[in-house]
Design a protein around this nucleic acid. Sequence first.
DNA 1: TTGTATGCGTTATCAC
DNA 2: GTGATAACGCATACAA
Lengths: 347, 347
Amino acid sequence: MRIDDESSGDVTDVAKVPTSADVAREAGVSQSTVSYVMSGKRPISSTTRRRVEEAIARLTYEPHAGARALAGHRTSTIAIVMPLRPTSSAQRLMTFVEEITLAARERDYDVLLVTADEGPAGLRRVVGRSLCDAVVVMEVGTTDERVTIAREVRAPVVVVGIPEDGDGVDCLDFDFAGAGRLLVEELADLGHRAVDVVGWDPDVVADGYNYVPRFTRGATSAAEDRGVELRWHLPADAPGLRTTLEQVCAPRPEPHGLLLVRAFPEVLRSLSEHGLRPGRDVDVVALASDTEAQAHDLTATATRPREVSRRVTARLFALIDGDAVPGRAAAETVPAELVRRGSTRRP
Amino acid sequence: MRIDDESSGDVTDVAKVPTSADVAREAGVSQSTVSYVMSGKRPISSTTRRRVEEAIARLTYEPHAGARALAGHRTSTIAIVMPLRPTSSAQRLMTFVEEITLAARERDYDVLLVTADEGPAGLRRVVGRSLCDAVVVMEVGTTDERVTIAREVRAPVVVVGIPEDGDGVDCLDFDFAGAGRLLVEELADLGHRAVDVVGWDPDVVADGYNYVPRFTRGATSAAEDRGVELRWHLPADAPGLRTTLEQVCAPRPEPHGLLLVRAFPEVLRSLSEHGLRPGRDVDVVALASDTEAQAHDLTATATRPREVSRRVTARLFALIDGDAVPGRAAAETVPAELVRRGSTRRP
DNA sequence: TTGTATGCGTTATCAC
DNA sequence: GTGATAACGCATACAA
């Protein structure tokens, strides 16, 4: 074994990446002291602290994440399991990811991305391999195997969505039922007795995302309460969509109400091509992001991804810190809010 | 130290996560054999292999990623540095992330997400801490400090975008100049001598993303070649946008050409409210994703995020495998293609 | 074809 | 307030 004295470097030394031992030598302290300076887990005299910090800066030392994880039993990483397809808008997903990542960075955590096409195995893998300390599962289905696994796994898991059997799992989501109710009530308030609803694509419905039936239930129950008839249309490619548009844009004797679960540009374009102007000839409400709703001037409820993300990360870090018991809290729901814009007449 | 015999477990043993040593004991082989079975880096007799694999299955063993990284000097992780805001569409970014993640998983790599708000430090951090083996930097600016750091850092970096000084860095992007050229030429072919262009928001321009000037150069040079006059409009909130819309929707004596750098719903809506129908009263071309273009029935060039991602990952893994020399290849560009839809008359 | 032994760079428990 | 030192779980050079 080669002796490690300070003058042993060859002339053509490759720039080795410095370790905490190098920092210790440079600062004239022990390696463990360097570790404690970084973690702050024990009192350090200000002079040693300064010398160590200067050595760190001189060598541009960075701790090895793997070694840390191995010795410290924590990775400082959280995993996000993404949904299979952009079922809600890509915008919404990006907002989630962005918000969670920023919150993580504030605590010096990193974010690992897992695609849902790995299925339940992905969840098992990232915690099994100790790739993360906690997991966020986005957009779970009504019955989702990953919810079961969330209970078995030895890391905290927060689930976005309200699955059928969510007992013992930390669930959290936007209140889609409340949104459905709010949108129908708005049209009812405007005097509509019948409402056309353009719902989700059949394949989105088939995926079993639980927010679809929740929204539907909210809308349906509000419709019953207010004596409104809901006529559901499912958009699809070419022919199916055309039929929907014809029905939705057909001339009516009475005022017409339209509820969109997304800001379908095709539908809005079709309306205007038929001479129907939102806010004048037809009242249109939608489930859409603020950005979309603004661009299309739609009265809408946004699904508030930022607020949901905030609560997700709060819950997650509470679990990580041991400030909360896993699966103990009831499913949490972020209330819906309606913003009126030009696509509806004023009540 | 406690002796590690097989009957030492207390009655109330917490389920310890198994290590390769546990697998070895269970299979009656040495720990190194387990390692070699998993890596395939040396020949193993079929009987041993079977016994080890069965033991792995019985114990549901998963290797500890940190320990692997420490001992193996590789993390099997690639990092993606995201842009600050969704400058191009969120859809486009999600597609990038999705495509890169899938390609990574095919090689048993994971993906770490880094937000650009960390700035150049983020790039330094993830490779300094050995959190990844390689990095993709999304949407670099015309002059971007991260490009400089990409050269210094000891891990392969592929950059999406064509920065001013990209020498010695692996750059790759969609051919925005070609797209600008293509779109202008299409309008020229339709007989337009003057074209209104609705460009990027001023704050996007201010961010210095280099695809903006590239697109502009392509469009401008095509306009000069074809004797077309380009009138640039920059959208903005409320008042600015209103002015733009008035100018763009003003009645004209001659046929009118319109080029959008995004599928601005506000602009399209405004057109139809002014009774101007794309493909009849005005020819509209756009830089927009297939999804958007289809929804709005726009003649458009897509920015092909999937194809760009494919080339990014190909390049990245070539660098990781040592099949390519870093910074050696010229900047690579994915050609633009135009798809005609209902928003333009047939030539 | 398999086993032994060492080191990877931290954290954390002792001792002083 | 600081310094040795034993894990942590795996990869791999060296033996057999």
